[in-house]
Design a protein around this nucleic acid. Sequence first.
DNA 1: CATAGGTTATTCATTTTCGTATATTGGCAG
DNA 2: CTGCCAATATACGAAAATGAATAACCTATG
Lengths: 292, 292
Amino acid sequence: MTITDWQSWQMLLQIARCGSLNKAAESLNLSQPTLSRQLQLLEMRLGQSLFDRSTQGMTLTHFGESLIESCEKMEQIAQGIERQVSGQDQSLTGRVRLSVNELVAQYYLPEILPAFMAQNPELSVEVVASNQATSLDKRDADVAIRMFAPQQQDLVARRLGEVSLGFFASKAYLDQYGVPDCPEALLKHRLLGYDRDKQLEQGSAQLGWPLKNEDFLLRTDFQPLHLELARYDGGILISHKTLAARFELLALDVGLTLPALPVYLCCHRDVQHNRRIRLLMDFLAEHLTLTD
Amino acid sequence: MTITDWQSWQMLLQIARCGSLNKAAESLNLSQPTLSRQLQLLEMRLGQSLFDRSTQGMTLTHFGESLIESCEKMEQIAQGIERQVSGQDQSLTGRVRLSVNELVAQYYLPEILPAFMAQNPELSVEVVASNQATSLDKRDADVAIRMFAPQQQDLVARRLGEVSLGFFASKAYLDQYGVPDCPEALLKHRLLGYDRDKQLEQGSAQLGWPLKNEDFLLRTDFQPLHLELARYDGGILISHKTLAARFELLALDVGLTLPALPVYLCCHRDVQHNRRIRLLMDFLAEHLTLTD
DNA sequence: CATAGGTTATTCATTTTCGTATATTGGCAG
DNA sequence: CTGCCAATATACGAAAATGAATAACCTATG
């Protein structure tokens, strides 16, 4: 006595999420007209409408809203199945998706990944570079290198150590603007800070020296830009000791010890025994020179 | 990062259940070749096979087996959605499915259902007549009349009373074979009993007078046949007092009081407020003359 | 007030998918 | 051993779903 196929509920959920047929269609690899018609069909079969249409997009009706929760449950299970599938695929061909922030992608991976690819010629590695923590739940990635303790349930994490942070600047910059030797002096300098990323604000607050993102003159969340700016004498940045050393930036002693960032290698519990994923994680754990 | 659509899992589950593409295709309203190809596609996308093929049918591989549990969970949620949908559909058009055993379908419904249909011309009633308790969970039926206390969770039941049972036979039969007046005498008669149905065995065991289905000479689970056989002087049966009276069968006093059967009107909690279903239940509760 | 940008619905040629019919295989009963 | 039955896989014409293009519409913005 089944009225509809399960795909309809997947559609419903995705349209509700995206708020428009266009975006939902894209996320489902369909065209907008297709989705429009399929939704009409579904509503016809149900005998009532799921969305109110407007030129702003689709908004759920009460009826539609009442079904969303169950659709979300279905989605979670479906995602679990997919993780299970990829977890059981023990072949050494195919892809592994690695999620890292841009800094790691730019400065740490390039020197080690070629060796991994040489060792495993059938394996392709996809790197998702973003400062947003991508979801291991939804299998947006298989493995992630994180600079914070994993919060999600169902994750398996290996602590790789920690990276020391410090204030750094180029010699040319310091020659021109002077060397600050206390926190107050630091604030008068051209500091490279973050835009929407709150990690620094939270960290400095813990240190008893609350900094606001607005205190910084040059702001971006794209961390490689910090380093490159500093290399071109753009100002003072907070960064990894090892990275700063590599670019011949000079460490500043302003009487503050910045907390070190922990480094975690994470994957979802469901895929932890997958051979490909294991392989990549082991390789990263061994070769990653993030920690001092 | 979704590999497959949800429909694939529905397929997988149904094929696993049915054990063959043919039956699964029928239950999904598809053709066997279609299902065959879709399954091939799915297995290709997953990179491993889900079933072992033979001319006996399809049997799950270990891999396939490992996914079934999740598919079942998805199915439960999907069924919940469908109940929710039909629960919220308050129109008075469409269908209501009523599950009853054959006895009720044959002898109690015909005299009252026409009135209901006259009152609600837009409503179509589908009667599922079976002595197997059809699933209200899976929406094989919306409403059920049951002669036993509902066991499933999530069911809403209204007790309508109970039907008295007794031993009966036609006058002609008794004239020919004599009137038994004790349990032992009863056993020498031509008793009409059940085939696979265990209800009578259990009931008589409770009564301290354990009967086996094998004790009866004419066995069928199709209850209307009992009555019709008795009308044609086929033997002694256990049946409802009201029904026996209607066919002018004579009650036998063998010194045993059979336990009465409770009568319940059930529906799933999710649809209990549905207007159509409510209507039918109210009607049945009022007009059903099952109880004495 | 007009324009730009976004939305959903519709049209129609095209592609894809589907189902009928058929081939092929393997077990089972007489 | 042989014929029968039920199973899956394959071929091909028919039907259905698809997507590019377009229409029609509303909102925000200058």
